[in-house]
Simulated scan of single mutants.
Amino acid sequence: MARLSLLTIDKESPRWRSLRRSWYRFRRNPLSLMGLAIVVITIVIAVAPEYLAPYPDHAGYYINFKEAKQPPSMKHPFGTDEYGRDILSRVMFGFRFSMTLAVVVLSLTAPTGILLGLIAGYHEKTWIDAVIMRVADMFIAVPPLVLALSICSILPPNIMNAMIAVSLMWWPWYTRLVYNTTVSLKNEYFVQAAEIMGASKFHIMFREILPNALGPILTKLTLDVGWVILIGASLSFVGLGAQPPTPDLGTMVSEGSKYMPEYWWISIFPAMAISFIILGFNLLGDGIKDALSGG
């Protein structure tokens, strides 16, 4: 009985009620649910393309000129490319490389940017703030794609260097977001109360301020997945990302563009796959933003 009572009290806590209200607002939005469905489909395909792709061996070194450049059919729903490889299978494996790029880049940049933003925001108008934010502003001043192209152009073209290039340009955006949020929260009563009680700076930043900034951070993370994938595809399109025969979506679009418009499916279906992923994460991010903000 004591355990049941404790669970009941926990479910009625303010945080639990807030989560329930957010979920209620989220599921009332059809576009948010559509985005969630697209993201789930993308993740499932990215995790297990070996079991879902109709021709998994076409993701690597495979050549069959007898079936080259075949239009979409029951046997090959997306058609085949110039080497006779099934485009649907390669698109499915392309989901894995795109999601890997996004996960690695955001896993590196988000924690770094969040930490620097917290430190700079809490030490507003000090030399710490000046150094961190001026360096961040230098990176933000350069267009992301231009900076990524510049970095990749001096490194050997491969997926690892593409990840490095995108990571080096992405952290300042999280620094700026968390900095602004921290500056607005540090003067709130709950932060001042913690300071009066003698809480350490570490406790205030990570136990008081950061949890209240998770909403904007989560929204940006979701929206950034699409942008990171688009930047990675752009690098691959110009030959500075993943190299053939890696089934990268940007590389597939680039290779197929040489055969446009006669063999349109070689380029169009990988491009549609990129749009599909970006659409899903953008809809999901907008839904999360509306749910957390009460919109």
Rank of each mutant, 00 (worst) to 15 (best):
I268R: 13
A213L: 07
I229C: 08
M169V: 09
W173Y: 15
L223W: 12
I41V: 02
P77D: 08
K75A: 13
A141E: 08
P261S: 14
E67R: 14
R3D: 13
S13F: 11
I63D: 15
I231D: 07
T181V: 14
I140H: 02
A162N: 06
L249C: 01
L284V: 04
P111N: 09
G84R: 12
K258G: 11
T222D: 13
L149R: 14
K220V: 11
S22L: 04
K125F: 04
V142P: 08
L52A: 04
S254V: 10
I43H: 09
M169A: 00
A2W: 05
F202K: 15
F206H: 09
L147H: 02
H58F: 07
P211M: 14
I229D: 07
M163H: 00
A59E: 09
I140G: 11
M133V: 04
K69L: 09
A37W: 13
L218W: 05
M99C: 10
A213D: 03
V103K: 02
S13T: 14
S107E: 02
A59L: 04
D86L: 05
R85P: 03
D129P: 09
E67C: 11
L283I: 11
I41E: 10
L235D: 02
L36K: 15
A273G: 10
S275G: 14
K11M: 15
A213P: 06
A273S: 13
P111Y: 00
K125S: 05
